[in-house]
Amino acid sequence: MSGVEAARRGLVARIDPAGHPLPLSEAAPGSAGRTGFWRTHRPVLEPARCVGCYLCWLYCPEDVIEMAEGAGPRGQAVPVIDYEYCKGCGVCVDVCPTRALKLVEEPIGEG
């Protein structure tokens, strides 16, 4: 295995006791690459409307939402979305009870 290959995400070379390299995979984000490239629309937060209910975090199929405790304008927890891997499915927008999340068209050339 070349050094370049070993440096790729998720791939780990281990050496066994006899000195042979073992091509082992270790779990890491992005087994399918930067899935954020899939997006045509991105979920965007309007912090003032968020009530910190965690529902978007709970239902995100991709697990790309982290809740930032106390980071909202009223001290509430607000979602922080990892756009590297967010696929723009819109589930978080659909489950948000206060319409704090909106799907907006992905700017061309970014993402």
Partner: peptide, 27 residues
């Protein structure tokens, strides 16, 4: 919802389709 553990054992950025429920179920 507060009884749900925060750590994850299943990494994002896989090839399941946008909105696939199986991804959420595995998580």
């Amino acid at each position: 919802i507060w009884d749900i553990p925060r750590p994850e054992q299943f990494a994002p950025g896989h090839n399941m389709c946008q909105g696939c429920a199986a991804a959420l179920i595995m998580r």
